[in-house]
Design a protein around this nucleic acid. Sequence first.
DNA 1: TTTCCTTCTTGCTATATAGCAATTTCTGTT
DNA 2: AACAGAAATTGCTATATAGCAAGAAGGAAA
Lengths: 353, 353
Amino acid sequence: MNDKTPKYIHIKNRIKDGIRNGSIVDKLPGERVLAKELNASYMTVRKAITELEEEGILHKFTTKGTFVSNRKMSPKITRNIGFFLDEDIKEGISSPYYSLIFKALDKTVKKMGYNMLLFSDFNDLNPLKNQKKIDGVIICCFPRIEDKIQEINKYLPIVLLDNTAADKSIPSVTIDNYNSCSKSIEYLWSLGHRRIGFISGLLDSDVCRDRLLGYTSALTRLGIKEDKSLIFKGNYSYESGEKAGEYFASMQESPTAIMCANDSMAIGSMKTIRERGISIPDEISIVGFDNIEVASRVFPALTTNAAPIEDMVNKAVEMLLSSIDGKDIDYKHIILPARLVKRNSCIPANTQL
Amino acid sequence: MNDKTPKYIHIKNRIKDGIRNGSIVDKLPGERVLAKELNASYMTVRKAITELEEEGILHKFTTKGTFVSNRKMSPKITRNIGFFLDEDIKEGISSPYYSLIFKALDKTVKKMGYNMLLFSDFNDLNPLKNQKKIDGVIICCFPRIEDKIQEINKYLPIVLLDNTAADKSIPSVTIDNYNSCSKSIEYLWSLGHRRIGFISGLLDSDVCRDRLLGYTSALTRLGIKEDKSLIFKGNYSYESGEKAGEYFASMQESPTAIMCANDSMAIGSMKTIRERGISIPDEISIVGFDNIEVASRVFPALTTNAAPIEDMVNKAVEMLLSSIDGKDIDYKHIILPARLVKRNSCIPANTQL
DNA sequence: TTTCCTTCTTGCTATATAGCAATTTCTGTT
DNA sequence: AACAGAAATTGCTATATAGCAAGAAGGAAA
């Protein structure tokens, strides 16, 4: 009481606490009423509330009242969009794939007069813990932070990219991982390959589970018996691709084609396979996923599934901005097909087999 | 007058205009004085000034007065740092080199409780045109926007990265391009190479001019006569590297070693040189610059100059934050040595020559 | 039930005033 | 010229008040 922190700061904190512990849910009492309740003058309360609005925690509507920002009332705009990249994603923003995403996002968002802010710590998004800096956020993450997403979603519009949440009310844009992989396998099959390996990523997300599922189901559909030894568990990194390459190269009966859950692993495996004296594509054909920049530059140029980055980003931004503007979003979950880019790393299977 | 825009907005605009046309230079009259001058009440003027401070245009000091933010008085903190990437830089933020820079910046800045904001349009930095969003900015750009840098520098601390400005009062962090290239040439010389080509980038910046100068001066020092036909002008892109490779491969007397102003061009040239049936490194050794991620993964692994990205970024951030805090910076221009990373793309020159 | 008018509520702008704490400026003395 | 103390200045917090415009709420008349 008798410390010298200003009264309006105390009021701010009381309101914040009220929101946290649930005693304030939606609408606040009017400024004049609040003033009496809190034994402060109208203007003092007003100052506290105004600052809280600037922080994005409250939102005021003339003639209606003051409300807790719960995403239905659009909060004050900062003209910044956040991009949250899970810190566990390999190489982070400088990974070949996510740097493309970020660049595309930045370009799209600039057109609409916004800027991009990069985050890797969820706490930095939370306006109750920090000053509000963004109007919405596009999130690429692993599913283990589900609950944190929910928390943030109370205050900020969210669009998930490349991932879906268990809570299906959060909009998302993803690639059709299942069918893209299936089609790649069918393509290899059409080239005569019958013994097809798979290098998976971490299986803790739908993304990679779907890619693996696309592979196994395509095999089943094509009448090829499943062989668990043909599935190598990687972690999306180049290095794990190298290990996968060594594994397949040293098998008694190597596969004649390998499908990889991303390009980095594909390129890593190409290196070690070749080091073992096995020729690509003559003896083993390779298919990747993502179509990163270097995919077209390695030798042989890598056949891969091109993520429709432009489309994904456009859709994600479109949904996010609509959400920021308080509009309804028609379709919450958008699944876009990847495009199989045929290059030189796949050729018909050796007839001698 | 009789339109209904609030009075305090008018006052804000009058002050902004005053700053623009130079009638307000440093210190503003006190709030109470200003109120009388402008025929408004103290609190009204105060509101205008407060908002201008939030926009980063003014800065107030209790007991001292209100001043135009001219960078000596530290402006209000937003806890955001800008990263300006010239839009003419190839591939922008998803280029292998700048994505590493950005990632390192983000990491460093996060430790200090800041976030990164990406910009490619200078106007977005200017608080007179937009709401102020950042406390300072790290700039990678070509020198043609010198004058714009000056303009921004009135309101924001700036640190130049990989570039220096004509105005040497703006701090910068750069690589020692000259000596790094010289040393690479000396290394090639020590391997017995005497006919050494050079693939330059665009010569409109000190960066590449210095790299070229390092090359030519090293040759002179080593007693090798200059041969202009051994210098190919590229533009930093992979594609221009491909062209350079074709050029050198089709020379009557190809060089036995090529120094490249960056890795992308080095890798591009390796591709087309090999396509012409010339072996790397057996017939031509290659040295790159930047040490991007793929440099270690191409075949043969590329010998290259590693930019000390961590150090550069640390220094740049350190200087910027000092500047934001209003501290003096001891050394304004920091030049860091690159490290020659020796890999398999360089071998002793063929003795048959 | 619908329509229309009045009253109330809400946040927004604007003014006036008062005391505080830190600092600068002025002033009188040595 | 130097110093010490008084006075003035500066921005910050806080209070009280008043009118405005726009919308919400309520009630009376059709």
